Simulated scan of single mutants.
Amino acid sequence: MYRNIPTNLITGFLGTGKTTTILHLLSQAPVGQRWAVLVNEFGRIGVDGDLIQAEAVDHAEVFVEEVAGGCLCCVGSAGMQVGLNRLIQSSKPDRILIEPTGLGHPAQLIEQLTGPYYDEVLDLRATIGLVDARMLNDPRYTSHPNFQDQLHLADVLIGNKLDCYTDADRSAFYSLVNAQGSAKKAAAMVAHGNLKQAYLDEPRLERIALFPEAHAFNTDTHHHHHGHEPPAGDWHRIEGAADGFYTASWTLPTDALFDPACVRQIMVFSGVVRMKGFLPSSHGHMRINATQGGWSEEALEQQMNPRIEMIGTDPLDWRTIEQQLRGCVENAC
Rank of each mutant, 00 (worst) to 15 (best):
I5T: 11
I10T: 06
F13T: 13
L14Y: 02
G15T: 04
G17L: 03
H24V: 00
L25H: 10
S27P: 00
Q28V: 03
V31L: 03
Q33P: 00
N40D: 09
E41F: 02
F42D: 00
I45Y: 11
G46K: 01
L51F: 01
I52N: 06
A60S: 14
G69C: 03
G69N: 01
C73A: 13
S77H: 14
A78V: 13
M80E: 11
L84N: 06
N85Y: 09
R86K: 15
L87S: 01
I88W: 04
S91C: 09
K92N: 15
R95C: 07
I98R: 04
I98L: 07
E99M: 02
P100I: 10
G102L: 07
G104N: 03
Q108K: 11
Q108P: 03
I110H: 10
Q112H: 13
L113Y: 06
L113N: 07
G115H: 05
E120K: 11
V121T: 15
D123I: 08
I128G: 02
I128A: 01
L130K: 03
L130A: 06
D132K: 14
A133F: 12
A133Q: 13
L136C: 06
Y141M: 08
H144V: 12
N146K: 03
F147H: 00
H152F: 01
L153F: 03
L157G: 03
K161R: 13
K161L: 12
L162G: 02
D163S: 15
T166Y: 09
T166N: 09
D167L: 08
D167A: 13
D169W: 03
R170E: 15
A172H: 04
A172M: 04
F173C: 12
S175K: 09
S175M: 08
S182N: 15
S182L: 14
S182C: 08
K185T: 12
M189L: 14
H192Y: 15
G193C: 02
L200G: 02
R204T: 10
R207I: 10
I208E: 15
F211C: 11
E213K: 08
A214G: 12
D220H: 03
E229P: 11
R237F: 00
I238T: 07
E239K: 04
G240R: 00
A242C: 11
G244N: 13
F245E: 08
A248V: 10
A248F: 08
W250G: 04
T254C: 12
D255I: 05
D255R: 11
A256R: 08
D259T: 07
A261Y: 04
Q265E: 14
Q265D: 13
V273W: 06
R274L: 10
K276P: 05
G277Q: 02
G277I: 01
L279K: 02
R287A: 15
G294S: 09
A299N: 09
L300R: 10
E301S: 13
Q302I: 10
Q302D: 06
M310S: 05
I311L: 14
G312S: 15
T313E: 14
T320L: 14
I321L: 08
V329H: 06
E330W: 07
